[in-house]
Design a protein around this nucleic acid. Sequence first.
DNA 1: TCATAATGTGACCGCCTGGTCATATTATGG
DNA 2: CCATAATATGACCAGGCGGTCACATTATGA
Lengths: 223, 223
Amino acid sequence: MDTQLVQPKQTFMNLAPEKRESIVRTAAAEFAEQGYQRASLNNIVKQLGISKGSLYQYFDNKEALFLHVFDHFTLQVKQYVKASVTGNGRDDFFGVARQVLLAGIAFIDTHPEYFQVYLKVLFERDVPRREELVARVRLFSLEYFGPLADRAMLQGMLRRDIPARKVVFILDAMLDRFLQGYAQPHLDGGLALAGMSADRLHDEIDSMVAVLRTGLQPSDMGE
Amino acid sequence: MDTQLVQPKQTFMNLAPEKRESIVRTAAAEFAEQGYQRASLNNIVKQLGISKGSLYQYFDNKEALFLHVFDHFTLQVKQYVKASVTGNGRDDFFGVARQVLLAGIAFIDTHPEYFQVYLKVLFERDVPRREELVARVRLFSLEYFGPLADRAMLQGMLRRDIPARKVVFILDAMLDRFLQGYAQPHLDGGLALAGMSADRLHDEIDSMVAVLRTGLQPSDMGE
DNA sequence: TCATAATGTGACCGCCTGGTCATATTATGG
DNA sequence: CCATAATATGACCAGGCGGTCACATTATGA
């Protein structure tokens, strides 16, 4: 989640920032709708009102454009999560989970196309450097929650009869699935998360975290 | 989940059953690997060693072939779940969840390509009659667990402070995610489910269900 | 002002796609 | 055996793709 996946050509960097942004946003929308393989460069340049030759002056090929879009996505995610968690002081394990969930919702609200690109990468074959891309995002989650769970375990905040890595799996599954349900109405298990008001959404999140607390905290701890 | 999505042409029905099966299996594999849009009929007929004209004597078009494959998938799932649950007597709510999880694993083991087709349908746009296809599978899960949860609630087997529909969401999310992780190694949250031995897999499932029990049962109930 | 460098353009290429159809092959039954 | 119906075939079509390149346009700075 550190170094860049690809370098655009110098010509692209010389562009006005607004134009750069509009290109990345338009490309992201196309990749989000169609996935990598079906996404059409002809479509992208048509929507941008530039010629195909220009696009090839900015990026070496379709793959480089796609990787640059993904670079933007990971950068944005990182910023969102960091901002939301560090902003709200020292929470306990489940408090952090709640914050991450809220950050995810906020991210999807402001950049729905980026999250769709991520989902496409997860479930599509033949995405260039797919393993690497997925690893970047998954590792971010695992490496983030892993140490947190270990610490919580040492502090007696988690049941000792469940291995820490299983706690992480459950947390990861729940968070990811909740976000998938928010972005992809079919997966919300009948909760109708998609059009929900912010208040009710927060209620859903709180009660979801509460269930995790009950299930994963030692029984001799209050809520 | 009842009526057929599409009728193959008569010519297809006149074929020897083994040939019919080999056609459906080969098509399923192609759709699983490539998704609907990218799947190539040229590829399918080449692998089958038949001409493209023949394929069009069996099905009206690509869409009809795809829908027929999906029909087979839903039929198989139904059989697997029914068989595994009815076979093992009267379990409690969480016991049934465990049985369904085991049935899902068994299904993926024997028909990995069908499950991949389902995942592709979930995350791909422009799949013909996509809403309908997803609804068939999701409704199967919701309509199955919904009444079960209601009954469990009435019998005092579930915490009263969590609405039944939220219990269903959590269960549905956990099961679906576990199966996704089994079929798609990136999503296993570091549990390495993919290559796991049957015994260890059963352990994982048992402890997962145990966590659900603890989190969702009233605190005054033993395990 | 003008030579040079940087950037923009879209017709064009080879390739692959889903789908068609005239024709060849095989099965059927009188 | 032969006429007819059923089935199999693959060359062919229009359309879209990623990518190229000779050329037009614009920016630069001496």
